[in-house]
Every structure is written in structure tokens, then in C-alpha cells.
Design a protein around this nucleic acid. Structure first.
Lengths: 221, 221, 221, 221
DNA sequence: AATGAATGAGCATTCATTCAT
DNA sequence: CATGAATGAATGCTCATTCAT
């Protein structure tokens, strides 16, 4: 008595289609991250897949839509991660440091995502604009920061007049720059911002910076 | 004593050659910044110049070398600017805030330079690596920061254990991100980081952040 | 005596099938007439239909056979019209003028048919050759012309030694050219052969031409 | 002492370029005439040439411009022929018959030109419209007809109220149709309009038709 | 020193058609 | 009888670069 399977549907093929789409998306992510939007080759993506170039057009429509799908996939992963963040049980200072560290770790763990975002900025976010899914403007991270900021201010610990979106920009800028600009920074200043032995150093620096900013003595102003 | 003109050399032609090279470099800067390294077209650069495509190869050797020359030219401009920074007469706190603001202003004033650097990072700084001129590893900004940090620590005002290069990274990350990621950030969070009416807001935020980090009360640690 | 419905057959489905075929044929006629045989797209035809591309292959077999079916359908319509021509009650001169005018009107009323015939000639009538239905070589118009010619010659009015097929060619050539070549003729000579205000002018010219040819004074020869 | 050759110019290569362009134009004429605009393949044209596909784009810009160039070349040949027509020494009746015959002969001699014109009409003369050269609206043939008509009317021989452009349409329609529609006409009526043994028959028919129309007794009207 | 002419290799995309129920 | 999914083979076109003075 088969109950799990649907006998009238060619389950194997359907599943193959989904798997093939996922495989294309995966290879495309690597290829776009490696060579940029213009530099990436549809031929090359297809060659590294078990299907043909024709399938890319069948499933995604074209190079532009494929890149959009890659971005959607990448952003959906980061939102997923943000949604799983749980810092509500910590005090505001510890919570904001923890959140900064999670952001720090996520950027380090996903350099391809950083590259894709940098590439999309070169193209002035036109693919995000073209995507219905990405226009939603909802970021779990912002909500988390908002809650921590409220608690920190209520308790008098946080003195800074900053909103959640700007604080997110502050945290992200350091995490993003460290990964995105590691090559030019390393070449010009002889320092590898992503060297493993310096990770704790930069992680702490980020936390210190954010906490110092939020809790600075502002009575003199 | 040599006269101003060198009679054996066709000065007019020479000067034309220099002007043509400069014109190519200028157009190429715009084109590479606009479309990325791969996206830029040698044909397009030539078309927007008073010379022909052939001259680009004659003067620069190829697309790769042209991009390297563009980077060299762009970086030389920023170093020039850094060299003119004069904050030695200010107290350490005011000096560091002033330097952060100058960095902030420079990034805002040169979005094409930001784009070129972002593009060069996509290509893992391979053109910087290939350039003899850019491998020099000398940044006036680092020297300035080093002096301020020394003074600040000597006076007991600065409590943070950070060196000049890392502080430069901290300042740059915010300035760079604000310009480089304005498109995706705007699309995703509905906030324009480069809006004119928010410039002072972000400029102050940056200064506050750096000062707070450097001067935070660290007796508890 | 069979009732109207056949109970063992899904009349509704059958009728749907016939309607679908007719719809495909109609859209295909427009598409082929608009873009030519090679220029027409099976995808486009399907998109403008309530069925899928697959159905075109199911019902017609392929693009080639679809075009043949379109031609068969178009020619069957014109033969139908020719069959309804009734000029037998007119005297030979009036009858031939009337027939020429009907031909003239039919060409003007069916520019898509003209285009299809022009397209089929580009392809050297290979689809007509492939069609059993169209190889039948029966044209009601020829029969009508033959009868008028016989009557006209019997009465001594018609002096020309011409047979029905050649006279049909003479009449058709003017009617066909006027519609088929209107674009190049208009572009090259600045005259619109199908301008509404010139219709009567050209209709009369055709009739005059044919009558003049048939009734010319040939005693001098 | 070489005076004919220009020593400073690579005459061989220049001449090769012109020859190559002419060769491409010649092959393209055949290919477009054979398969239509959409049906013709740039690859196929290149393959039948001593150069590569790349050269077609270098010399002509694209398929569309190549087709326009083919049309320009074909029309320039026919205008050349029309310019060489000399019928001024003949009486009006003989002159118009001679002109009709020359038109008849030219159509028969250039079936590829007929096909190109038919194809251009399918595309609604858009390439002629795009051509500066072809928009000139000057046809030597019209001028010749105008002169003959004037003379014929002055002498009282021609009674018809028709202008040169319409008479050109009348003559052309028969000549054009005979060649352009020979395939469908042959398939449907079993008569080859271009059969060699019938050439004189149709040539005479055309002349008779035009003369009969122009000289018909119109006193009854 | 300076340049007009030429090009091999590859580019994103589309075509009519068939597979497999 | 009917059809959603898949595809091999091409299609028009463009790229950075070099040839040949």
C-alpha cells in the first residue's frame, strides 16, 4: 500500500526537474559570484551542470532572470538565518553584541553572497527591482534590532539616537567591507582582513565599536 | 641652458599624444565604473574618444592594461588628496573626527572610484597585483592616523588598542559601504544612504562611532 | 433514422476538437500571412490560441502541414466564392466586365490570401504540390470565363484569340499586383494602388483594358 | 614609370575588399531570393563566400542592412537598364509596344529580382523605406512612358485617359505576375506561364492588351 | 610613430520538434 | 484522445585583438 508516492505522477521526473533547477541555481551562483554578471557565461554554467544550456532558458527564461533567481535564492537563505536568531533572552548589550557577531559570522561564511551583492550594486540593484519576491522590504534582522534598541533605551543603557535600519547599516558595513574589499585592502595595506588568526580580533572590534557607540557618555553634549 | 622647446622633437604631437592618452583614460574610467571590467566595451570607450580603438592598443596594450592604468590613475588621485590632509594642529579627538569626515566626503564625491574598487575586488585585485605602481603600499592616510593615535594614547584620551590600518578599515568600511551598497540597501530597506538631507546625519554618526570606540571607558575590562 | 446526437460519441469533445482546429487554422492564417512561412512562429501561433503548441502537432503534424492546411482552407474559400458567381444572364461584354470586377473586389477584400499566395510562390508552390486537395485543378472561374468567351466569339463581339486560362491570368495579374505590390510600388512611385478613393478608377481601368483587348478591331492584321 | 597604379596604397587589398563585398552581395541576392528574408541564413551566405560571416557584419552591419543593400543593388541594375531604353524614334504605338516588350523581357531575365520584390512586399517595403538610396522616387521608365503618352495623345492615336504611373502598373502587373505567380498558377491551372514556347504568345498578348486599351474607340462613351 | 582593415572565437538566444505518458 | 516537459541544432550577432603597412 503505497501512500507516500503519487502513482499517477511521474515522481521521478518531477523530482529531477526540481533537482535540475536547484543544480543550475547552485552552479550559476558560483559562476556569477566568480565572474560577475557580464563575465559569467551561460555556456559555462550549463557545462558544469548535468543538463544543457537549453534547459537554463526553459527553466529560467534567460541570463537576466537566472541572475535574479540566484539573488532571490541567496537572499532567502540569509533571511532564513536571520529568522532563527534568538537573542531575546539576553540583556540589551549582550544581545546587540551577539547579533553583530552573528552578522559577522554570516558574512564570513558566505563570501559568494557578498560578491553577488557587490555585483548587484554595480548593476544598481536592477535585478532586485525586477524581482517581486525581493521587493518585499521585510528583514527579520531589522525587527530584532528594533526590539533590542527599545529595551536598551528603556533601561537607560543605550544613549545613542539611532534607528534600527541605520544600526543595521553600521554593523553590515564593517562585516561586508571586511569580506568584499579584502583583496584591494590586502594588496594596498598588506593586511588580510579575513585571516583566520585575526577573526576574533575583528569580531571583538566590531562588538566594541557598536556597544561603545550605543552606550557612549553623552551628558556633555 | 635648454630652451623651453626641444627643437628635435615634435612637441605638438607629443602633447597631443599625452592629451589623447588622458582622454582615453578619462572615458575608460567612466566606462569601467559604469559597466564593470567585463561589461565595459573597448569599442564603446573608443567611440567616446576622439581617437580610434587601435590607439587604445597602441598606448595601453589591451583592455587589461587599460583597466590597470585606470586604477593607477584613480588611486594616485586619492593619495594626492590624502597627502593634503592637515589635522596635526587639532587635538586627537578633533583630528580623528576631521579625518573621518574627510574620508566620508571623499567617498561621497567619488562614486566612480568606489565602483572601480568594488569591481577590482570582484576580480580579486589582480590588476593591482599586476601594477608596479600600485604595489608600493604607501598610504599617506595611514601615516596620519598613526600620528593621531599616538598622540591620543599619549594623552590618555584614547583607550582602544587598535592600530592605524585597522582604524582605517573601520572608517573606510562605513564610508565605502554607504556609497557602494546604496542600491541594494535602498531597494531592500527603503532607505537612501546617500540622500543629501541625511548627509550630516551619517557624517556625525561616523565620527561619533569612531570617537566612542577610541575613547570608551575600558576600566571595567 | 438517426437522431441528431450520436450517443456513443462525445459530441461535445468532437465539436471542441473541430473548433480548436478551426481556431488554430484561423490564427495560423494570420501569422503566416503576416510573417511568411519561415517568419511565422509555431510558438506565436500557439500563444494566440486557446490550446498549446503541442496540439498543433497533434492535429496537423507540423509547421509544413499546417501551412498546407492554411492554403487549402484559403483556396477553398475563394472557390466557394467563384462558384456563386452568376453572370450568365448578362451579355458577353457586361459579363466579362462583371467577372473582372468581382475578381478585383475579391482580391481587395482578401489581402491575407494574396500574401499567402505570394508566400507560396516564394516556396515554389511546394505545399500545393504536396496537397491532394489542391492538386485537383478545378477552378469554377475558368469555366465561367470559358462560357463567356464562347458566347462573345459566337456573337462576333470578341475578336481576340485567347483561351480562358490566359484571360484569367490577364485579369488576375492586375488584381493581384495591385494588392501584392502595393508597398514597393507605393515606396518607389509615390502612389498607393489600394487607396480607397482610387478604387473605382482602377476597377474601371481593369474592365476597360480587358474589354478593349477582347473587342479590338483586328481587321487590319 | 608607373602612372596608373598608386604605389602608396595597397591596391590589391583595396580591390579585394570591393570584390569581397560584391561577392557577398551576389551570394546574398541568390540566398535571399531563394529562401526569403527570414529563411535566408547568414551562415549559409558566408559559407558560399570566400570570406567569413564576420565580414558580412563588418561590411554591411547586419542581416537587415545586407538585405537592403541587395535590394539597392538589384534596383540600381533595373534603373540602369531602363535608362538605356531608346524608343523615341518610334511612333507612339510601336514605342509603347517596344517598351512593354522590354519590360516583359527584363522580368523574364531576372526572376531573382522578381522574387526579391515579392519578398520585400511581404515585409511591407520596410527596407526600401529604410534606404536613402531607394527613397529617391525616380524611375527612368516613368519618364519614357510619359513622353510616349504625350506624343500618342497629341497625334490622336491614344484615346485613354491614363497617366504614366498607372500605365506602368498595368504593364508591370502582367510581366510581374507571369514570373512571380508561375508556380501557384501552374499548379492550379496546369499552365506554365514561363514556358519558352509560349513566350512570344504572352509577349504579343501584353502588347495587344496595352495598345488596345490605349487606342480603343471611345466615341460611344 | 601611427593607423585603417580585418578577424577567430565565442555570445546569448530561439527554432521546430519529440518524449513519455 | 490529449498533453506538460524536454531538447538538439542552429541563429543572428559581438567581442577583444592583430595584421600589414
Amino acid at each position: 500500500m503505497a501512500t507516500v508516492e503519487e502513482p499517477t505522477r511521474p515522481a521521478g521526473r518531477i523530482r529531477d526537474a526540481a533537482r535540475t533547477k536547484a543544480e543550475i541555481l547552485d552552479v550559476a551562483t558560483q559562476e556569477f559570484a566568480r565572474a560577475g554578471y557580464t563575465g559569467a557565461r551561460v555556456d559555462e554554467i550549463a557545462a558544469r551542470t548535468r543538463t544543457t544550456k537549453r534547459m537554463i532558458y526553459y527553466y529560467f527564461g534567460g541570463k537576466e532572470q537566472l541572475f535574479t533567481a540566484v539573488l532571490e535564492h541567496a537572499y532567502s537563505a540569509i533571511r532564513q538565518a536571520e529568522q532563527e536568531v534568538d537573542v531575546d533572552h539576553l540583556d540589551p548589550v549582550a544581545a546587540i553584541r551577539r547579533l553583530a557577531e552573528l552578522t559577522f559570522d554570516h558574512h564570513e561564511a558566505h563570501p559568494d553572497f557578498i560578491r553577488l551583492v557587490a555585483i548587484e550594486n554595480i548593476h544598481e540593484a536592477e535585478h532586485i527591482a525586477a524581482s517581486e519576491q525581493l521587493g518585499a522590504l521585510n528583514s527579520p534582522a531589522i525587527e530584532v534590532i528594533r526590539r533590542i534598541l527599545d529595551a536598551g533605551r528603556a533601561s537607560g543603557l543605550f544613549t545613542a539616537d539611532i534607528d534600527a535600519v541605520d544600526l543595521h547599516a553600521m554593523i553590515s558595513s564593517f562585516c561586508f567591507f571586511r569580506v568584499s574589499n579584502r583583496h584591494t585592502f590586502g594588496a594596498l595595506f598588506g593586511r588580510d582582513l579575513v585571516a583566520a588568526e585575526q577573526r576574533e580580533h575583528y569580531r571583538t572590534m566590531l562588538g566594541d565599536m557598536v556597544i561603545a557607540y550605543l552606550t557612549a557618555d553623552r551628558t556633555e553634549d
